[in-house]
Amino acid sequence: MYDLLIFLTLIAAGYSVGTLLEKRHYRSIHKREKAFLYLPAVTMKTVDYPEEKIRSAELVYGSVVISIDYFKKILAGLRNIFGGTVKSYESLVDRARREALLRMKEMAGDATVIVNVRIETSTISRKANQEGVGCLEAIAYGTALTLEK
């Protein structure tokens, strides 16, 4: 009975605090995305700028490790039994990728465009593939081109 009580408390705490933190993170993401809207990141290798106008090319990257909250972890565990879309993890990967992209853009500073962007995610936990810490790393990288004014 005691264990069940602890479990329920953890779930409740995970849900309330997790939701709060996620809302706050999304607010920050939205704000910064608006601020960085001038800097496009594209997957293409070349953008048709004349070569002599490019002043510098530099590798830029940004990464973040983000963790799931306890409530969503349990929810995903339940979902794992019945199968289907794991909706509780969607916001986690979405936040991780957008955060990584933003950090990459922050590193690029006053560049004009970031080309050949790649995004990768990996889980880092004690046992790969197993029920572990429940967090993932997202990394975004590309080449920042700065044009002459």
Binding site: Y15, F71, I74, L75, L78, I81, F82, K87, S88, E90
Partner: peptide
């Protein structure tokens, strides 16, 4: 991100 109520999903599951 699917707009959904996680709490409801939790109780159903």
């Amino acid at each position: 991100v699917t707009p959904t109520s996680h709490l409801r999903e939790f109780f159903v599951l």
